[in-house]
Computed example of a mutant assay.
Amino acid sequence: MHTYSTDNDFRPKVYAGLALLAYGITILVEMVTTALSTVLPFAAGFVISWGLAFAVVWKAHVQWFWKTWLARVLGITRVPDLNGKWEGWIVTSYEGDIPDEALHHADDPSEDGQKMVASLDIDQTWRKINVHFETTQTPSDSNGATMLTEKGKWPSISYQYENPGSPLVEGLDMHFGTASLEYREEGDTETLEGLYYTGPGRDNNGLMYFERVD
């Protein structure tokens, strides 16, 4: 996984808030153990360090709290939670032969581009993300990303990826590319839709569409 940037980065304020929360926890634990020491002598003098308290609240926030409705109400988080499996298709400008098993059932030879079955597996925390893209022919993984959450627009993610290529597919050498996807949530359906293009040496581009399935 790698870090990602956003246009609404509250991370410095969140760091400060978590530090204060950790300090409050150390004070609370000391107060509770002092009160309990009258009936539980072994509790006397029990304290936890600020470092331990901060590590606990930091872990809880990074892995869980940032995804909750409360974090969004408080304005701590504006980026969407994209964790999970997404299935869909791409329409590629590649004009070579693509095996039938790799093509999407809605592929139409009379239209420009070839529609291929594709999927995304996204692993995301508060600070980091990995976007794993895959077709039946080859996978790729992101190595950098930015999420935009400006009000009045759908949130979007733009990411750079590296594709290792495949010796089983003629001409499919290692290459780099960029994808830009808008996140939409309408009713019970969540989608990622946008464009991709590859770097020099491959020069392909096309459409991408995915729906969250997990």
Rank of each mutant, 00 (worst) to 15 (best):
G84R: 03
P80I: 02
L148C: 04
F42P: 01
A71Q: 01
Y4L: 04
R78S: 08
R78T: 11
A118T: 02
N143R: 12
D7C: 03
L172M: 12
N204K: 05
G171S: 01
A179W: 00
H104L: 02
S37N: 04
W86N: 00
L40K: 14
L70Y: 08
T149S: 11
G17A: 15
T189N: 07
W86E: 00
S166W: 06
E134Y: 09
Y197H: 15
D100H: 10
I157Y: 03
N205C: 12
T68K: 06
W58C: 04
W69K: 15
L20W: 11
Q63P: 03
V91R: 13
T125Y: 04
D214E: 15
F133R: 02
I157R: 00
G24F: 12
P109H: 03
T3R: 13
Y94S: 03
M208T: 11
V29R: 02
L18M: 10
S93N: 04
F176L: 15
M208A: 12
A55S: 12
S5Q: 14
D121K: 09
R202L: 07
A35F: 14
V73G: 06
T146M: 09
V32I: 15
D123V: 14
V62L: 06
T33Y: 07
V39Q: 15
E211C: 03
M174T: 11
K153W: 08
V117Y: 10
W89M: 02
A53H: 00
L172G: 00
E186S: 13
D7L: 07
G187I: 08
F54Q: 05
A118S: 11
Q63L: 13
Y15W: 14
F210V: 03
N204T: 15
